[in-house]
Simulated assay, not measured.
Amino acid sequence: MPLSRRHGDRKVTELERLAALAGEASAEAAYAIEQEAPPDEAARPVADLTAAAFFDVDNTMMMGASIFHFARGLAARKFFTNSDLARFAVQQVKFRVAGKESRDGIRNSREQALSFVAGHTVDELISLGEEIYDELMADKIWPGTRALAQMHLDAGQRVWLVTATPVELATIIARRLGLTGALGTVAESEDGVYTGRLVGEMLHGPAKAHAVRALAAREGLNLRRCTAYSDSANDVPMLSVVGTSVAVNPDSGLREVARKRGWEIRDFRTGRKAAKIGVPSVLGAGAVAGAVAAGLAAYRKREHA
């Protein structure tokens, strides 16, 4: 398939098609998980049916990158070494900085991300995710951002996380925080085992906006009455589809956009802590996912050697 094609008067790229597919799949998964929640979780009072809040995770709700913390947990369980993680993360950063929007680039990026879970069971990922959240993520939640989410819950609104992290891990984070649910990257599975294929693309950039729109349609939300929170300029598409946008711990790009558009800015960082958590943000979810993927591949190779 060519990288782009004409659709009416609009040029539609392969990346845009995958982003739309990823968004739709994420919304469908989030809606299904919400409907299947145990009665005590599904019974949260929702007084305001048309307004909701959407929170990015990495450096917005959580200090650092959730997938990086998950990778640390996997390294502690001997899935791969910390040096493996660092080496492959650097390789991914180089690719993402120098890469171009080509068919090979798209395929390589997707292969890196999907190999993160390929061959593992859904139950395995959920079990590991629950353990690692309690060990490494629970104390990384920003109290200020958590309070913002609670404000929406107290107002009777639903609250979703929106992240490139696999939807199963994102849902664990959401449930631990008492939120409604999560929109995340959807990896295809058959008979409870991941096939090694993503549904669409990673939930990143424009894909998040597609997911929010799709979920809003399913839930009957009025996006003009919704609020979105993020730290990254990559999430401007998502921030732009709602009525109220808030920059939380913003990077320089988002801070500039927020100032120009009159968006509220909340910064819960201070000095050294702000510098410390900036590194996972620079690496990005795709880079770290690639590192985890390569590490898992190396682990499986050693196991079968």
Score class of each variant (00 low, 15 high):
G73L: 03
R107L: 15
F68A: 13
D191P: 08
A118M: 08
S4A: 15
L161C: 09
G205K: 12
L128D: 13
A293R: 04
N82H: 13
T180H: 09
M1H: 14
S66P: 02
V241A: 01
A20W: 10
Q91N: 11
G295R: 05
D267L: 11
E24Q: 14
V167H: 09
S4C: 14
V236I: 10
I126S: 08
V117Q: 07
A298E: 13
I67N: 04
A32E: 14
L198M: 15
L254P: 07
Y299W: 15
V246L: 04
H304T: 14
R261K: 10
A29L: 11
H152S: 08
K276R: 14
P143L: 06
M1K: 14
K301C: 11
R110K: 06
A287K: 00
A52G: 06
K140R: 14
A65D: 15
K301P: 08
P280L: 01
E303F: 11
R10E: 15
A65Q: 06
S115Q: 10
S109Y: 11
L283H: 12
P166L: 10
V162E: 03
V167Q: 09
R261V: 10
R272E: 11
N108Y: 07
V12K: 06
M151G: 09
L169Y: 12
A164Q: 00
H152V: 01
G105E: 02
D154W: 09
K11G: 10
G64P: 05
F79H: 12
R77G: 05
A22E: 02
P237H: 09
